[in-house]
Amino acid sequence: KKPMSASALFVQDHRPQFLIENPKTSLEDATLQIEELWKTLSEEEKLKYEEKATKDLERYNSQMKR
């Protein structure tokens, strides 16, 4: 599977709780709203997800070399 971006990892982490809190929201709308939240994060908060994305890219690259 392809590597995930930092923002995609953020959405993946936050979507389940968002949908619990907003059960009538469609998956598409939830994703859009969480992506807007991503844009408001500080660089420090984004760094955690950027590090995860880097590790996921390394995983992807090692799988492609096999």
Rank of each mutant, 00 (worst) to 15 (best):
S42Y: 00
T31G: 05
L32G: 06
S62T: 06
Y49G: 01
N61Y: 06
P16M: 03
K39G: 00
E45S: 07
S5F: 00
A30V: 05
Q63P: 06
E45I: 11
T40N: 11
T40P: 02
Q63G: 11
T31V: 03
E43H: 11
D56K: 04
K2F: 06
E58P: 06
Y60W: 10
K65W: 02
P16F: 00
Y60Q: 11
T54A: 14
N61M: 09
T31K: 00
L57H: 10
Y60K: 12
N61L: 04
F10L: 01
L32C: 15
E58G: 08
S42M: 00
T25I: 01
L57T: 07
K39H: 07
R59N: 08
N22D: 03
A30E: 03
E58N: 05
R59H: 11
M4Q: 14
K52W: 04
K65E: 15
A6W: 00
T25R: 05
S62Y: 10
K39N: 01
D56A: 12
W38L: 00
L27R: 07
S42H: 05
K55P: 04
E44I: 04
T40I: 08
M64R: 09
T54Q: 10
E35A: 07
W38V: 02
K46D: 00
S62V: 11
L57A: 13
S42G: 08
K1W: 01
P3S: 02
L27E: 02
S5M: 03
F10G: 00
D56N: 05
R59L: 13
P16C: 04
S7G: 09
H14R: 02
R66T: 14
F10M: 03
Y49P: 02
L37G: 08
L32K: 13
T40Q: 11
S7L: 11
K55I: 13
T54G: 15
K1V: 07
E58S: 10
T40F: 13
K39C: 08
E43T: 14
E58L: 12
Q63A: 15
S26G: 07
Y60M: 04
E51F: 06
L9F: 09
T40R: 09
T25H: 03
T54L: 13
R59K: 08
E45G: 06
W38A: 04
D56L: 09
S7K: 15
M64K: 04
L47A: 15
R59G: 07
K52S: 08
M64E: 07
N61H: 09
Q33K: 12
Q33D: 06
K65Q: 14
S26D: 10
E45V: 08
K48N: 04
Q12T: 02
A53F: 07
T40G: 13
E35F: 06
S5D: 04
T31F: 05
E43I: 09
K52E: 12
E44D: 11
D56Q: 08
K2M: 05
A53L: 03
S5L: 05
K46N: 00
L47R: 11
L9D: 15
T25F: 15
K48M: 10
L47F: 11
E51S: 08
E58H: 11
K48R: 09
Q63L: 10
F10N: 01
L9E: 12
L47Y: 07
T40A: 05
S7W: 03
P16V: 03
P16L: 03
R59I: 15
E35T: 07
K39D: 05
E28D: 01
E51G: 06
